[in-house]
Amino acid sequence: MDAFTTHTGTAAPLRRSAVDTDQIIPAEYLKRITRTGFEDGLFVAWRTNEPDFVLNKPEYADASILVAGPDFGTGSSREHAVWALLDGGFRVVISSRFADIFKNNSTKSGLLTVVLPQADVEALWAAVEADPTTPVTVDLQTKQVTYGDTTVPFEIQDYVRWRLLEGLDDVGLTERHLDDIEAFEGRRPAWLPTALPALPAL
């Protein structure tokens, strides 16, 4: 994946809570077997049915930072939601709380999810609504979000931060510990099930 160090761009205020991954990208777009090209499905129902939807407004068309309400990314585990956001030009999502699987998926593809207190989210909403051209900088090295005269620190696990800064692939990291995996496998009880061979039904 691409490394993430720091990003500066404009931000779109998505004043909605509990945005589920079915809204980020509906299931019909999940039939594709590619890993890119999902931008046409990004928030497609809201973009189609709601003329006032924030991403339909020209002033937010080039936004690369999405500032969402609490509980962003609930529901389905579809990593396509992360891919659609990246394909749609977003590098960062800011919310006061994310759903676990979405947040975890985001770290695998280089989309940075930043948790800020709701009061800071509200202040950022107000700033980018007042002036949609406000540059917002999200710096993973210093763990800070900066816009105008405001700087807000954020927390992220050191290990996750290191992986994102380096753009490292998890599988490669785990393969360094094959000895541990083999040792563990030697200790597994023999009665644990295997799917092969297929056994006759009852």
Binding site: S77, E79, H80, I101, N104, N105, K108, D170, V171, T174
Partner: peptide, 9 residues
Amino acid sequence: GIGTSEVEH
């Protein structure tokens, strides 16, 4: 539940 990157892992 896990995402596709984790499925690969």
